[in-house]
Every structure is written in C-alpha cells, then in structure tokens.
Design a protein around this nucleic acid. Structure first.
Lengths: 216, 216
DNA sequence: TGTACATCAGTGAACGCGCGTTCACTGATGTAC
DNA sequence: TGTACATCAGTGAACGCGCGTTCACTGATGTAC
C-alpha cells in the first residue's frame, strides 16, 4: 500500500518481496502489459538494475507473482471449502464464492495469473501451484458429485471445469468495474444464480416446484 | 493470409481494410499487446506514418477491429439462431456453438474484442456493435425461456449473461491451444455439456431418468 | 477533349521517450581465525 | 574481541531498440470549366 520508498541503507533487506508487492499494485493499476520492471524498481525505492539480482527478467517476475497468486488462491479455496463441512453442497458453494472474492480483492494477482499471457507452465513452480489450485476445485466437485448416482455423474474434472469456466467468465465480463460494464446484475449474484441453476441441472438441488415445462 | 506487400502504385487503394486485416493477423500471432502500428503498416506495404491518414492512433485502430469483430460475431450468431427455427431450444444451442466457433476461427477478432483492454464503449460505434451482439443472445434466451412458467423464469438478460460467461470462460481457459492447456476435454464438448446441464437446471430439458438424489 | 487546380493519400526523416538489460563498480554484511 | 577477506546486494551510467507520433513534402486522382 505504501508506495513511498523507505530504505534502511544501502541494502534493502527485503527487496524480493517489495518487488512482488510493487508488481501486484502496478498490474492492478495499469494491467499486465502496463507493468514495467523500471517502475516496480522505482516503487521499491531501488535502481532499475536491482531487480536483476532477484529475478531473471520481466517474465520471471510476473511468473513469480502469478505463482504467489495461485498459492494464495489455493489457500483461500481450501479455507472456504473447509474440508467439505458442514455439507458437501455448502462447502462447494463456499468455494465458488471464494473464487469471486479472490478475483475482486486481489485483481493484481488475478490478472497476473490469467491475463498476463504468462503460460501456466512457464516455470515448474508455477505449474505446480496452478495444479494444486485446480485440484482443490476438482476435489470439491468430486465430493459433491458422490451424491449423484454413478451413471449420471459427469467426470469430476469436467464438473470442475464447468464451474471454473463460469466463474472466470463472470469475473472477466461482469466483475470488472471498468466503464462499459454490461448488464444490471452484480457479479456475485450472477455467479450464485448461475451455479445454482447448474447444480439443479445435475440433480444436486431439488427442482423448483411448479408445472412441468411444456414440450419444446 | 498474404503478408507480401503488393502495391499498385503510390496510392494503396485499399489501405484502411489492409490495415485492419494486418491488425487481425498480428493480434492473432502476438496477442493484443504485441501488436504495433509500425508492423501493421509494414505488412500492408506502407510507411509507418500512413496509418494516421485513416486512424487517429493505435487505440482507434484496435477499437475499429473490435467493432468489425462484433459485427461479424453478431452476423454469425444471427445466422446460427436462424430466427428461432426449427425450435427455440435447437436455435439456442446453435448460437452457443456459433460462439465457440467464432472464437476458434477468428481469434484475432476475439482478442481485440475481449482481451485488448479496449473498453466496449471506447467509441459509440463499438458500443453499438457490441450491444447488438448482446441483444441477439438475449433474444435467444428470452424466446427460449418463454417455455418456462413465468414465476420461475429468470430475467432473460441474466440467462444470457450466464451463458455468455460460461462460453467466454471456456474459450479463455480451455479453447486456447497454448501450451499449458488444462483438462482433457475439448472445448466444444465442455461447452455443450455445460450448457446442457444449465438448461436442465432451468427445466428446459427433461431431467435424466434415474433415482432421486439423496438428501445432502 | 484538354487543361488548371484542389484534394487526397502517400513518403521519409526526425523527435522524444522509456524500456529491458548489461557492466564494472562499491558499500555493507557476515564469517574464519 | 579484532581484523582480513569473501560474498552479497546494491548503484549509476550506458547501450540499443523500437515504438507512437508529427511534419513538411510530393505524387496521384478527380473534377470544373
């Protein structure tokens, strides 16, 4: 938050972390391609050459930010999932809410992860972090779909992919407060209702009462 | 496709369109931020200053490409929708397929529209084009949901937003052939099944036969 | 049909800028003895 | 406890580059008469 460069002396003492922080803020403000190493260094109160003591270059720094983002993301999802309690359904819905909350509270991370152009396998560490996050969502989906008879149970990874796709789509299209926002619905409501309808389609939520749909 | 600059003389004759074409190709190859006016001009066989006779600047050119993209997009969606025939349901599913087909066949347009950072209301013409595209999807959703009893019918714009979000999410996360693609499912199958489950949740597709889900 | 002229769509040189990165350096830190 | 020295994390100047944009210009086109 504090952009003022404050240094204790010749050595920064914490430059690596300070650069990561600065990168997050910069990406948040100007988007992934508006980010420059030079400005991150300036914000950390350090010369433009200093970052190269800690990162191989621009892409390496962004990849590291993305990795940290996935780590935090996974932690939040895991915390929200709460080991499947109090019920598989509520735990699942909580992870969905956590997804959106993460994107809204940490747009810098989110952009580094999904909009920076850094491929998810740019570094082995990044690949591992993103896989771990995927695994949590997939686990939540798997646990929830155990309540479904096996013969009409989609693969858990497909289930998870559907939810991920809808969540990501809502974030990208409707959660940004950029001018030109579409539609009158707040993003969290949109995602909540969307997931609700999807789960009803799977048979995980009882259908609404009401007359049968006419034949179409 | 032909990158060779071929000119008939001092005047290009068709520079505006040639620049748009070059921009599409460049964005497709290098992403929206890899695009430069200088290179678009070179591809069109023209000096770097020439584009300024036709566009106010970089952003204006990208915005125009996005606008063209929305126009084509709307046309394809409209064609796929086919005025709601042969049935509201099949017409709706066709528009979903058209969405994905557009993203796959015209990635340059798609990126200019959704990933370039150009806000959808950057110019009045762009805003109009994107609204028209939205309107078509919303119309398809409205027509389809007429088959639902009014009291459990979500607003058509919300319905449309759900579908748009899932489609966009599938495109962004699973349709790119970039290294690091996730999941073993082809994008079209993912979208098809996802929309199917969603529509079942709305009651627009009869539920699968099978035992009731246990209480969860 | 021919000529004069306005208009238009290009050129090419130049600008200022900021970026990513390298390099030889230097000041601070910590460890061996 | 004090000193010598290796190591580390910074500096600042410099580089080459390519970009967006401007400007005075010039060649081609089309229209009025």
């Amino acid at each position: 938050m504090s952009d003022q460069p404050r240094r204790r002396g010749y050595h920064h003492g914490n430059l690596r972390e300070a650069l990561i922080e600065a990168t997050i803020d910069l990406i948040e403000e100007k988007g992934p391609q508006g980010f420059t190493i030079a400005e991150a260094a300036k914000r950390a109160g350090v010369s433009a050459a200093a970052p190269y003591r800690h990162f191989a270059g621009r892409d390496d720094l962004i990849a590291e930010v993305a990795r940290c983002g996935f780590v935090l993301f996974a932690e939040l999802m895991e915390f929200a999932y709460d080991d499947g309690g109090p019920s598989a359904l509520s735990a699942f819905l909580a992870t969905g809410r956590a997804y959106l909350a993460f994107a809204e509270k940490h747009p810098g991370y989110y952009m580094a992860m999904f909009e920076s152009g850094v491929p998810l396998n740019a570094t082995p560490e990044l690949a591992r972090a993103s896989e771990r996050a995927t695994a949590i969502l997939t686990l939540a989906a798997a646990r929830l779909s155990e309540h479904l008879p096996a013969e009409r149970r989609p693969p858990a990874s497909m289930f998870a992919a559907h939810i991920w796709a809808m969540s990501h789509g809502v974030v990208e299209l409707f959660a940004r407060s950029t001018p030109g926002s579409r539609g009158p619905f707040p993003a969290d409501q949109l995602l909540e209702t969307g997931i609700g309808i999807y789960l009803r389609g799977l048979g995980l939520i009882p259908p609404d009462t009401g007359p049968e749909p006419e034949k179409i």
